[in-house]
Simulated scan of single mutants.
Amino acid sequence: MRKRAIVAGALALTALAAPAATAEPGSVLPEPGGRYAVGVTELHLVDHARQDPWVPGAVRELMVTVRYPALPSGKPRAPYLPPGVAAAAAEEDGRLIGVDPAEFDYGFATHSRTGAPAFGHQPVLLHSPGAKQSRALGTAQAEHLASKGYVVVAIDHTHEAVAVEFPGGRVAGHAMPPRTIEVAKQMMATRVQDTSFVLDQLEVLARGGNPDAAHRRLPPGLGRALDLDRVGMFGHSGGGFTAGETMVTDRRVDAGANLDGSMAYHQENRDFGRVADEGLDRPFLLMSAGDHSAASDLSWQEFLRHHRAWVRQLHLPAGEHFGYTDQQVLAPRLGVDTTPFLGTVDPARSMASQRAYLTAFFDEHLKHRPQPLFDGPSPRHPDFEFRG
């Protein structure tokens, strides 16, 4: 039987001339659309000053994936998921939809070359996934942004994600207690601390150090590639909330994007995050889908009342929540009804528009290149409503 590809946990769900990227056939993900080849590496980061909030007696450990503009190389292409996470994801998704886990294939090749030499000196983008989800969920966006001249750092929030694989094959599973408002607040506080710690470790890397816990060899030029004077952040769902909350407390992040994430712990009680209650003084992009937008989300309304800088709202009426993840292009391959979580929008067209808007946002606010795309509705992106 032909194997199926689906996103992990989603159903739980310089001065030199730039090298041109070559097409990378064989991946089920859409090809990156920029001029650069894409390199990738992972970092195992340990915060010895912080206890893990979900596992007593353990220090906080994180895994991050770094994708970056790279020199063309014959390095191997990285798999979508490592074996331990792939197995856990297959079990989880198989249970949820009643399919034999053996039918799922999470080891397909991405367009990113493992350990390829880094190119240039580029702005940095942080990516946080949704609650309980893998950092791999944003791979299609990360590869495209890296090909456009950004270093993209995707963070797994350990013990919240279904599974996180560390060097040597050790796998940390989901260990959070059942969700309550207090647990949700602890989760968000942990995510914000994780993000700021990752930024700290990127500063070590940019200074010539190696923050990896085992000091594993890093791709040539990786530290020099990090321009930490230009930092942005984006995320889906809880990751979008994380981007806003991080910007409230960490001024190193210059611009942020929320992909369909509420900024509330409890809407009806008006128990909102600080980003909603206080707003921000730096650029922020809100992207929504289906019946979710500022028209229906009280926390977005509160954020817009308090926000003091550039802001735009883009809405995808024929989309749904998980359309802002790799599922937009992967899940339709399953042969099941994806309407409840992806909507009816054309997958390829939706992903192309998402990439265009997200790249334009960071190009305008981190590279200071004016983007007419944000002046009003675009006939090139008919699926999106422009809400100012």
Results as ranks from 00 to 15, higher is better:
residue 369 R to I: 01
residue 297 D to S: 02
residue 349 R to C: 01
residue 105 D to T: 01
residue 206 A to F: 09
residue 155 I to T: 03
residue 107 G to T: 13
residue 94 G to S: 12
residue 68 Y to I: 05
residue 187 M to T: 10
residue 377 P to A: 13
residue 290 G to T: 10
residue 35 R to A: 11
residue 93 D to Y: 07
residue 306 H to G: 04
residue 127 H to N: 14
residue 6 I to P: 02
residue 206 A to Y: 07
residue 115 G to V: 02
residue 371 Q to Y: 08
residue 86 A to V: 04
residue 141 Q to L: 15
residue 355 R to T: 10
residue 176 M to R: 15
residue 58 A to N: 05
residue 354 Q to V: 15
residue 283 P to H: 00
residue 222 L to H: 11
residue 192 V to G: 06
residue 140 A to G: 10
residue 254 D to S: 13
residue 238 G to P: 03
residue 57 G to I: 01
residue 62 L to T: 07
residue 310 W to K: 03
residue 207 R to K: 15
residue 119 F to G: 01
residue 294 A to N: 00
residue 45 L to W: 04
residue 89 A to N: 11
residue 126 L to W: 11
residue 309 A to H: 11
residue 314 L to V: 06
residue 221 G to M: 05
residue 210 N to K: 07
residue 343 G to N: 04
residue 178 P to W: 01
residue 288 S to L: 07
residue 326 D to N: 13
residue 46 V to Y: 12
residue 166 F to R: 07
residue 376 G to I: 12
residue 117 P to G: 00
residue 134 S to A: 15
residue 216 R to L: 00
residue 302 E to T: 13
residue 152 V to P: 13
residue 378 S to M: 01
residue 133 Q to K: 09
residue 111 H to V: 12
residue 242 T to L: 13
residue 32 P to E: 08
residue 260 D to L: 08
residue 113 R to Q: 08
residue 340 P to I: 02
residue 257 A to I: 05
residue 112 S to P: 08
residue 135 R to H: 15
residue 80 Y to A: 07
residue 377 P to I: 07
residue 186 Q to H: 09
residue 146 A to H: 02
residue 74 G to M: 03
residue 269 N to K: 15
residue 326 D to V: 08
residue 8 A to M: 11
residue 354 Q to F: 14
residue 106 Y to R: 14
residue 254 D to H: 15
residue 64 V to R: 03
residue 364 E to L: 03
residue 177 P to V: 07
residue 191 R to W: 13
residue 46 V to E: 12
